[in-house]
Design a protein around this nucleic acid. Structure first.
Lengths: 215, 215
DNA sequence: CGGCAGTTTGACCAACATCAAGTTGGGTGG
DNA sequence: CCACCCAACTTGATGTTGGTCAAACTGCCG
């Protein structure tokens, strides 16, 4: 069983987990916290290309070197398996591979939604989209969803949000302020976000003309 | 065997294959030609999120509805399998699922490279990156690679390139003209591209400081 | 010889980046 | 306990890239 070979690792916010090109001899699943995958260009420009929340999978069976920088965005606990035993187990248990395929296909879908955001949305729509994605993700887990709206802890700094969205942190700050000024979001401190009317936020994402009746 | 249930379908350049939300009861693999996956926003903005070249896979086992618009960019031949028999076969043949997982992981990597392009590269770097990607893909297949450089048939219109890169077709046209003016690419007609010095093109992608020695 | 899709080019403009000060607030050491 | 410090954030002034709108060009097909 998988349980026999698993172990846990913890990281503090900001700590690197692996650098692009490093040998990576484990795969893992996020237990708590948030991690990011990023690509960097020589001149320092970086783009986040993956955001791992609890239950997400990290690593690629059958590949030695990490293709991205992986960083703990918040305090983070991973549940790890050494790669070789994990791969061996995958051989014997097709069910695991099938589950992994499903998860990978979901990630691909998310990446493609993200591409639309990066390629075609305005700064304001990008911010709204990110907040909507985070709110939705957290909903399915521990989010407080009262009749007054949703509340969640924003796990990203302005810089990380900029990195996610292909913006600068100044633009992120301005657009967040604008959404706040208009009452579409309410900030309690810098990190706690309250969304009084999710449909109103959804409208700002540009994803649909009406208030969010679709899939 | 897979061969028992496969059949072929052909499409002309520009023809739709499925629309987002349509029921899709087959999966397929591209034999010849090019297809695109695109996401559209209500106001008409669209972003290409997948570009399928020969040997690429189309469709998601275990899902009924297509999540994207699929269009034949050039004349196209697909090798199709009805989805249900294909899924049944996957159950019995873990090898197929493993292959599919590998392909999906590769697609995810490609999507992430694409995200860096969309989020952080300049228009000129975007164009250079796209040309480099196409040239590389075609190299591994049928590309003529002479000592004078590489030649290939550009399978995309300016509009499709713009769609791929998150630009307008005017910007694409200008940047292609600029690369042509500077001798980094040579156009024979509108569609045939000659790359006299691939490393020079590679430098314009922003991906590495030197002439392209890395992975 | 049109006609039309695909493309090129130009003039102008808006969105976002860049550069530059400030501000906030939580943590630390005196 | 308070003063300071520093990272994270906000805000403003200005600059640049790429978008928008408009017009003309190309080449293929009927």
């Amino acid at each position: 069983m998988l349980d026999d070979i698993k172990y846990y690792r913890s990281y503090e916010a900001g700590q690197p987990i692996v650098w692009s090109g490093d040998r990576m001899d484990f795969v893992a699943s996020v237990v708590t916290g948030v991690a990011s995958l990023s690509q960097a260009m020589e001149d320092g420009r970086t783009q986040m290309v993956g955001l791992l929340l609890p239950s997400d999978f990290l690593g690629r069976p059958g590949r030695d070197a990490a293709p991205y920088d992986v960083v703990a965005v918040s305090n983070l606990t991973l549940c790890c398996f050494r790669r070789k035993p994990f791969e061996k187990m995958m051989m014997g248990t097709p069910h695991i591979g099938q589950r992994l395929l499903e998860m990978t296909l979901d990630e691909l879908d998310a990446a493609r939604e993200w591409m639309l955001i990066l390629g075609r949305k305005t700064a304001r729509e990008k911010i709204a989209s990110l907040l909507a994605i985070l709110a939705r993700r957290e909903t399915s887990l521990a989010l407080k969803k009262t009749e007054d709206g949703m509340v969640f802890e924003l796990p990203l700094t302005r810089e990380a949000m900029a990195d996610y969205l292909g913006l600068t942190l100044e633009t992120v700050s301005r657009q967040v302020s604008a959404l706040k000024r208009e009452g579409i979001i309410i900030l309690e401190g810098k990190r706690r976000v309250l969304i009084p009317d999710f449909d109103r936020l959804q409208m700002e994402t540009g994803d649909d003309a009406d208030g969010g009746m679709m899939a």
